[in-house]
Amino acid sequence: MKKYNRGTTVGGSIILLLLLASAFASSLVTMNPTASDLMNRLKPPNFSHILGTDHLGRDVFSRLVHATRLSVGVSVAALSVSIATGLSLGLVAGYFRGVIDSLLMAVINILLAFPGMILSLAIVGIAGTGLGNAVFAVCVVSWTGYARVVRGMTLSLKERDFVKAARISGSSDMKIIARHILPNLLTTVIVYAATNISSIAMQLAALSFLGLGAQPPAPEWGIMLNEAKGYISTAPWLILAPGSALVLMISAFNLFGEGLALCLNEGKRVGI
């Protein structure tokens, strides 16, 4: 820990608040996020609906709060899957080299030849729309970063004296990976994850916005924006609420990630 960073604290607190909101969404808001009230369509913000109502008369505030569950939760899920895949494949390839390594690098290089958003769109477009496929598509795009970072570091850690010493003294490969290599990778992976999650969240939201991710009537910020698209001129508050929520979440992730990278002095290695 080189120095204290205000950005990390602020970003971290916002993320924590969002996580809390998603955990206690139903007790925070009493109104049903999917109950439509066709008598009260497209009402601007007022006392009973502080952020107004949408084209089906659903309460925007309630939808906004419930959406944290999908928007934040799904991003975290996609992040975890990407980390797990990238970390394990990168470790194995970097440590054992050989055919696995060449194969992994070939696959990564091919995947990196596709612009990320376009590859995930194509996967969802072909495999079919839906939240599960969207998460899968985003993971296909983002695990490569982890695999590359982890593989590179494993390669260099393997040459370090403490690993050589452990090998000479007869530790098994699994033990060396678990005791000596993995702990030395973790900081970098955490910093990389902290800087990567904003782009994962952004991609998932974009997929939902395009109608390929989470499906209506589920409350999700991307979907809310998609539904608001037709009402830009008549009901701009429908854009403002989920739009600000998205910007807040992504900026919080950025703030947290940048700050963490600065604190732990890992900026160079993860490329920011």
Partner: peptide, 29 residues
């Protein structure tokens, strides 16, 4: 720049469309 960097294209686009096309009527949408 920090905030705009964290604004997804569709949020920014719809925001600009509302502000510049709908409110100010400066540009077609």
């Amino acid at each position: 720049t920090f905030i705009v960097m964290g604004t997804p294209g569709f949020v920014l686009g719809m925001g600009l469309a509302w502000l510049i096309s709908v409110r100010l009527r400066l540009l077609p949408m």
